[in-house]
């Protein structure tokens, strides 16, 4: 069936099987392989994307449920060739090692900072409940999110 939605600011219309998961739509149809699959039980969060500005697990959402929605993936965060502050934070603070969970982490952190511009360490850890990382022990991820929060607040203040 036909779905139409906006992905990273670009309107798309595609014919898909109704059973297509949003993550498979993004990866296989839209060709955006930055969004990963790490489990099938909606737990690891590697597939996290923004749907109408809110973090969702694209492995637990059918593409047809995204009809008319605005989807943002990790590929859509940078502006004018410059990283989003969250991406920059992950780079700056060594918030990743193997990188597999990273796109999901970044999208989740982006959602968090849009709601809470100055989260505490505990708030960051709680917000990352739905994103597993096996490499970092999370500490540098916490630092990365804080870096981004400071940067974004400074940019707003300026």
């Amino acid at each position: 069936m036909r779905v139409s939605l906006t992905v990273n600011g670009q309107r798309r219309e595609d014919d898909i099987e109704p059973r297509t998961l949003l993550v498979h739509y993004l990866r296989e149809v839209a060709g955006l392989t930055g969004t990963h699959v790490g489990c099938e039980t909606s737990l690891c969060g590697a597939c996290t994307v923004l749907m109408n500005g809110r973090a969702v697990k694209s492995c637990t959402t059918l593409a047809v449920q995204a009809e008319g929605a605005e989807i943002t993936t990790v590929e859509g965060l940078a502006r004018d060739g410059k990283f989003h502050p969250v991406q920059e934070g992950f780079w700056e603070e060594h918030g990743l090692q193997c990188g597999y969970c990273t796109p999901g982490m970044i999208m989740m952190a982006t959602d968090l900072l849009s709601r809470n511009p100055d989260p505490s360490e505990a708030e960051i850890r709680a917000a990352l409940e739905g994103n597993l990382c096996r490499c970092t022990g999370y500490q540098h991820i916490v630092n990365a999110v804080r870096y981004a929060a400071n940067k974004m607040r400074a940019a707003k203040g300026a």
């Binding site: 969060g45 996290t48 749907m51 973090a55 969702v56 697990k57 637990t60 739905g130």
Partner: peptide, 9 residues
């Protein structure tokens, strides 16, 4: 409930 992503959907 669950996690942020689950609560969003």
């Amino acid at each position: 409930i669950g996690d942020v992503q689950v609560r969003n959907r």
